[in-house]
Design a protein around this nucleic acid. Sequence first.
DNA 1: CTACAATAGTACTGATCCGTCCAGTACCAC
DNA 2: GTGGTACTGGACGGATCAGTACTATTGTAG
Lengths: 226, 226
Amino acid sequence: MASPPPTLPQAAAARAAAPTRRRTGRLASAAVIMEAATTLFLRKGYAGTSMDEIAALAGVSKQTIYTHFADKEHLFSDLILRNAARVDEFVEQVGGILDDSHGLEKPLLELARRYIHLVIRPEVLQLRRLVIGEAGNFPDLAGTYYQRVPERVLSTLASNLERLAGRGLLRMDDPMLAANHFVALILWVPLDRAMFHIEQESLEPGRLEQLAHAGVRVFLAAYGTS
Amino acid sequence: MASPPPTLPQAAAARAAAPTRRRTGRLASAAVIMEAATTLFLRKGYAGTSMDEIAALAGVSKQTIYTHFADKEHLFSDLILRNAARVDEFVEQVGGILDDSHGLEKPLLELARRYIHLVIRPEVLQLRRLVIGEAGNFPDLAGTYYQRVPERVLSTLASNLERLAGRGLLRMDDPMLAANHFVALILWVPLDRAMFHIEQESLEPGRLEQLAHAGVRVFLAAYGTS
DNA sequence: CTACAATAGTACTGATCCGTCCAGTACCAC
DNA sequence: GTGGTACTGGACGGATCAGTACTATTGTAG
């Protein structure tokens, strides 16, 4: 009786280290629920996921879910915005990548690489599909998501491009438009395909590297000064 | 008793001209059902639309739906592919638009205009959201949709760009990549925003015209020869 | 005219699911 | 201890929904 038998549902292993079945802190179960809900919502969609499934995967009573989240909609919204916040790390790196004095093409290429590899991660793609698909039922959530993720990257990129233009390395009239063009050239091919194909097939690193190079080349042909 | 009272459900007006309540041909009701189902699926999503609602909007008994379509999934698939076929008209125009001898920039700009205005139509956007959102539940359907709509436009565009390159008007190594870059530059801004914002706000024609111009300018800077 | 196929209308089955309720249990602070 | 809090486990109400059954009706082909 010292420890429960190892027949726990999968995600419950996160709390298996606890001496007993009880979570240590008040917020621990909320995190476990979030994790299980994220897994299921991303895999099966909003309507395709039941609260009972979430409770089972989290190894938690359904009542516990409702002590942490008002209802299914709030759980979903919190979950989306929480996962959207992961873009912060990337946004904070943009300035540094474009700031070092290794010329212009190399930093842009490095930025392109990182952005591509960030966006084509399966969880990110599924999150994007989910928000787009539920945009009709959660319009405010979709709008907030767009504002916090893609638009935030675009704004950061625009200000950095404008800074480079101030140094004479680039020339542009509309930095936000230039940022959109850069992102479009980099992400269109992998992202547009991935939105419709769950199992991404042709995403070998060589192809992605080629796409990054080609996108930067086109961008510099239009916005470069050399 | 000569005609039914004007309290018919909305879409039933399509058959109100018939002398009696019965459809004239066998396939007439299938078309009415399709129309109603399209309206509802696009507005409320797959899970959010019930067969009873479709029957009510179509002014048809639910049993009639099941005489024309095996089940909800088949109705949905047929509906998506049927609406996807509307891209045919545009694909057939591409060659003509890029073929007349009015230079290079003007035809490309005209193509950009038409493509933008085709894609930002609310029904097209909603169809795209719907297919993306249901890609997890209907992977084959999503794959077929991508193949028949965006990829078909890209292939057509690629072959035309290659033809222009053969005349020395453009230069490119990879026509398909060039086509992707063109589409990316043209569609990214309006499409990426629209995927997350149901009510499109800032889509005044002036802005779209500006986007078309800017996209063509960047494309020609990279792929033009003059 | 008759047989047939399509349809209307309605009720029904079986299943799912959200959210709630409740009794009992384990931990923690004091 | 004692009270408070979080949690379990199960049951359940209320609602929705896909798909079927069945009868009655109507147009149409032969």
